[in-house]
């Protein structure tokens, strides 16, 4: 892409002061540094998942646990749709990431109408993802088939579905449910704050704040955060649902 970043500047001048050696604004650099720290937090969560898997003597296969789709009752995994709903959620997040990058691109052309259009699409995608996660959590906490608590309220016993064996549910390690709620909950919270940030930016775009400023860099910064949320989900999808 053309612009400040690709401008040829002798390395000596670049580091001589009076300008950012990265040819980037302060806000964008700081957003990146925040994302590095956040990525380390998520990295720690996923590595913890690895630790649990290594130290447990039995670990459920996720497609034996996540095989439900809305409005269809499927008692056994064979009657269900393994990973279908998670795949849908992943797809929603990727598409909303694409609409975000299109909003950023429209912002670089000062095309207010298209920025609004793509930002609205991104916010809708975020809400669909959040709704899906609420459905998934509700289904596995109180749903008819997936009892997925870390323990049972009435017996105070471990009560957790660890997949199926010969048509009967088997109990899995509690850590499976615990790390599931930790990772997807923490990620869902990021999606929620991302949607809120996007809504604030969208309102500012509609009000013309960035038009007055002359550039839409705030859309770009919000976009960085939103792409990061998508990036994390790519890893959660692989390490929790697929492996």
């Amino acid at each position: 892409m053309a612009g400040e970043v690709s401008k040829a500047i002798p390395p000596k001048d670049l580091w001589e002061g009076g300008r950012s050696p990265f040819s980037m604004s302060y806000g964008k650099i700081m957003m990146w540094f925040f994302l590095i720290s956040d990525a380390l937090t998520f990295g720690a969560f996923l590595v913890t998942l690895g630790w649990f898997r290594y130290t447990a003597d039995y670990w459920p296969v996720s497609d034996q646990v996540f095989y439900h789709i809305p409005f269809v009752h499927s008692e056994l995994p064979e009657q269900g749709f393994p990973l279908a709903y998670v795949a849908f959620m992943t797809f929603i997040l990727i598409i909303s990431s694409v609409t975000m990058v299109l909003a950023v691109e429209a912002g670089h052309r000062n095309d207010k109408k298209n920025v609004i259009k793509w930002m609205i699409a991104t916010v809708i995608g975020g809400f669909v993802f959040l709704g899906s996660q609420v459905w998934e959590w509700a289904g596995i906490i109180v749903g008819p088939d997936g009892v997925f608590g870390t323990y049972d309220d009435t017996t105070m016993q471990s009560n957790f579905l660890g997949g199926w064996l010969n048509g009967a549910p088997i109990e899995g390690p509690k850590q499976y449910a615990q790390i599931f709620y930790c990772v997807t909950g923490f990620h869902g919270f990021h999606v929620f704050s991302g949607v809120m940030i996007n809504i604030v930016i969208l309102i500012n775009v509609i009000l013309g704040t960035y038009e007055k400023r002359g550039h839409y860099e705030m859309v770009e910064k919000g976009g960085l955060y939103w792409h990061f949320v998508d990036l994390v989900w790519v890893f959660v999808f692989t390490f929790f649902y697929l492996l």
């Binding site: 892409m1 053309a2 612009g3 400040e4 950012s20 002359g214 550039h215 770009e220």
Partner: peptide
């Protein structure tokens, strides 16, 4: 220095 203005591009 307004770097963000340098990031704009044409149609």
């Amino acid at each position: 220095i307004e770097y963000s203005l340098g990031a704009q591009h044409s149609e």
